[in-house]
Design a binder for these strands. Structure first.
Lengths: 338, 338
DNA sequence: CTGTTAGCGCCTTCAT
DNA sequence: ATGAAGGCGCTAACAG
């Protein structure tokens, strides 16, 4: 008896209201848009809406998708959805998009182009109308392919050099520059950066911003950039910190939050103290900062903005109502917190 | 010219291979299942598969969903997808499910039954085949309703008393009991718990496990449970910690990781030290533990297991291949780490 | 063992 | 201003 009760269809409404299916379809489509109910008698229209309401009509999205050739879904492919930054962006995207009747599908690449290719494939086969991609290394071809297949793509967090695709990124160079300047202002004059050995625009920009600040401050020979492997950095970072301690390295800028956690862990275990032994600047907040009122500087990325701007961008590209004014490169500013 | 190239359909294959659409459909359906290609001439079948391969055929899922009356999507509703625990579970669910050809939709309730109702509604309208729900307070009716509508539901992380629905949860009572016992073993004899004033089975079980351990250890009058509001606990926790310090409270068990972070923050700012002033036990790992090699005990939840068991359960309930042996209450064990 | 038929629910001309 | 009809791509039930 509790069998899934048959869903109400457009046909039921038509019968109940004594009109044709086509009319119902028409009225329902124009209900949500603010458009006038031109082309249909106002009374008839209202009557149809009432019946639909009474029967609790909900359109069958599969049927609609089949007919329209659009599924109303957006694929979002990040490097790791369980990374706090992306998890929070995803969270905001959800809210943003559900209210517009779209659906988001999430996927993670683990910075692996093979996985990216696989997920893109899955999403395209599922018929996503648009794609948000956080590109990993060596993903130019994959992304180029999917663009050429006609599916709108928006890049997030990182750009891909040479591809003419809309992107939403942080002003990483400036954030990094600003934090480095603050470190210098606090009296640190030898600064090291721990970064990944990956060719990602956000990473490179963060490195560059630090270099800019050092050079501009006349500290050209006083910085060093360490690039560690994304997979096995534990031992390496321990060593870097140890050597820095011996050399009397003064401050560290970490290219990512994960690296900062790793580095601070090394420092703690090495018996070093913050900010006495090392000044610290990094990206993104971490609840550890909350526990131990560590005296460090971090760049807070505007998460809601990332979600909002990115979705605005894809949704503008998707569907029948083309936006004319899709911004190519949206650059968001970080807030420097200490 | 880069217009979205028309998708290859079953019809194209039929024409190209010189057979009927139905045959193609049949062969394609049986390709993925390990089933013998009985019922169809082997040569014909192979020929069809070749052509499909050559044309890079991908079935249109909207059409399939319309025809089958199932969409191949599972809705997963947690309290907050950006909470690290749920984010990681979600991550594993993705992987688990994509390989089986399903899709997951995520939603967050913020512990608000009104939001739960809204999201359930959205997901049901979207036609999810099954639902995974982390029930919040006062969600009995909502969950009961959706069950009666015929959509399979599996509860995760928490149960709902009185509802006969499959669930996948942690053995919270035992984890809490074990951690409390360890604290007692370390010489702490007055133990306080900071918990939420919410009627959630996981929270209640965690409280009960601690009480069990205290009573069993003959420390009946030596514990205290503080229940703070989910929304504004900052000041409250500060005060609890301060008073505990004055009274000489010995150890804290935190009902959630968020509360632990809050509590440890209060302790730090109050000038207390761990484990000298306070022993600590909590749930879930936090990267802060990694930075500051804090001497505490925590219960590590088996995240991959949560994802795997939960998905196994919904997928067994969904679709045409009913599993007979759906376990009603799957209880996972935590690993106690210190 | 193989092929045909009849829709699934919706939307979009086209005819009235 | 409204209705009738056909078809999106696929599959289940039905012949052959």
């Amino acid at each position: 008896m509790n069998a899934r009760r048959r869903k109400v269809t457009i046909k039921d409404i038509a019968r109940e209201a004594g009109v044709s299916q086509a009319l119902v379809s028409f009225v329902m489509s124009n209900k949500n848009r603010g458009e006038k109910t031109y082309r249909v008698n106002e009374n008839t229209a209202n009557h149809i809406l009432e019946v639909a309401e009474k029967l609790d009509y909900q359109p069958n999205l599969s049927a609609r998708a089949l007919k329209r050739g659009r599924t109303g879904t957006i694929g979002v492919i990040v490097s790791d959805i369980s990374n706090p930054f992306f998890a929070e962006v995803a969270r905001d995207m959800e809210d943003e998009v559900y209210r517009k009747g779209y659906t988001v599908l999430f996927g993670s690449t683990d910075e692996d182009p093979a996985k990216l290719r696989r997920i893109v494939r899955v999403f395209v086969d599922k018929g996503v109308d648009g794609l948000v991609i956080v590109p990993c290394q060596h993903s130019e071809d994959i992304i180029n392919d999917v663009c050429n297949s006609g599916i709108p793509v928006v890049l997030m967090d990182r750009r891909v050099e040479g591809l003419d695709i809309p992107s939403v990124t942080l002003n990483n160079r400036k954030a990094s520059y600003d934090m480095t300047m603050r470190l210098i202002g606090k009296g640190y004059h030898f600064i090291e950066m721990i970064s990944y050995d990956m060719e990602l625009t956000n990473i490179k920009d963060r490195e560059q911003g630090m270099v800019d600040a050092m050079i501009e401050s006349g500290l050209d020979g006083y910085y060093k950039i360490h690039r560690v492997s994304h997979h096995e950095h534990r031992q390496v970072v321990d060593n870097i910190v140890k050597e820095a301690g011996e050399r009397g390295g003064e401050a560290f800028v970490f290219a990512t939050n994960t690296l900062a956690v790793r580095g601070m862990s090394s420092m703690f275990r090495g018996g070093f103290h913050i900010p006495q032994d090392f000044g610290i600047a990094c990206f993104d907040y971490n609840s550890a900062f909350d526990i131990y009122d560590t005296d460090l500087i971090y760049a807070r990325q505007p998460i809601e903005m990332f979600a909002a701007k990115t979705m605005e961008c894809v949704l503008g590209l998707v569907g029948p109502d083309y936006q004319e004014d899709i911004p190519m490169d949206t650059v968001l500013e970080a807030e420097i917190v200490e």
